[in-house]
Design a protein around this nucleic acid. Structure first.
Lengths: 107, 107
DNA sequence: ATTTTATATGAAATAATTATCATATATAAA
DNA sequence: TTTATATATGATAATTATTTCATATAAAAT
């Protein structure tokens, strides 16, 4: 059975969803704008937004036929901290990545 | 192709690996001790420890035939922050979880 | 030197996640 | 009231991650 930590990571720790959160740090955006900025498919984006809303990482309001998404404040802080850590550890993380690639004959 | 953020989440955002990091917050431990505390299999634990080492989330030193693992300081801070966020958002995350369970006929 | 203890490795099996496709809904414009 | 736009949904396909199994290695004890 999943615990709160699992559920947290399920929602938070995914490239596409994290990219959405990164975009929403600066300003609120509607789905169409996110699609353009992130270059992802409409269906994928919609699924990911639903996931982020379920976990209260973002909220949504209607404006005409658009839906406008906004990140919540605590989530924003966490995104900042993770982004910062990733930046500091980039070289190690990449090394780890290279090891994987080697396994597949690349590099 | 994976970027640094992907690699970060690959290592960090996993129940078993996160539990290892949680245990190591207080004090360094050898594999056997982790196994007992976390009740996981030897092979799984070993794979997970390797992953955490590759990404420099933890370090290891030898002591006789044991290997002793220690969390690094910045990782410890991040673990604390995430644990804190999960605690604050637990109710929402659980609600999200319940939605999933419903899908499988439970709840 | 052989056995025991502690841990690591690699391949295969299993499980979970993510992407895709077809279609639905809701609002606004014509 | 039909059409266009914006977004959502659910099922399946494709991909990736996790677990398991068999076996290997390394250090210490006998």
């Amino acid at each position: 059975m999943k615990n709160a930590t699992d559920l947290f990571f399920d929602a938070f720790a995914n490239r596409n969803r994290f990219n959405i959160l990164m975009q929403l740090r600066d300003k609120e955006l509607c789905a169409g704008e996110l699609q353009q900025k992130l270059k992802v498919g409409q269906t994928n984006l919609s699924h990911d937004l639903k996931c982020l809303i379920n976990c209260k990482f973002i909220s949504v309001r209607k404006d005409g036929r658009k839906r406008i998404y906004r990140i919540n404040n605590e989530t924003k802080e966490l995104v900042d901290e993770v982004a910062n850590h990733v930046k500091n550890y980039e070289s190690y993380l990449k090394k780890c990545g290279i090891l994987r690639e080697e396994k597949n004959g690349r590099v």
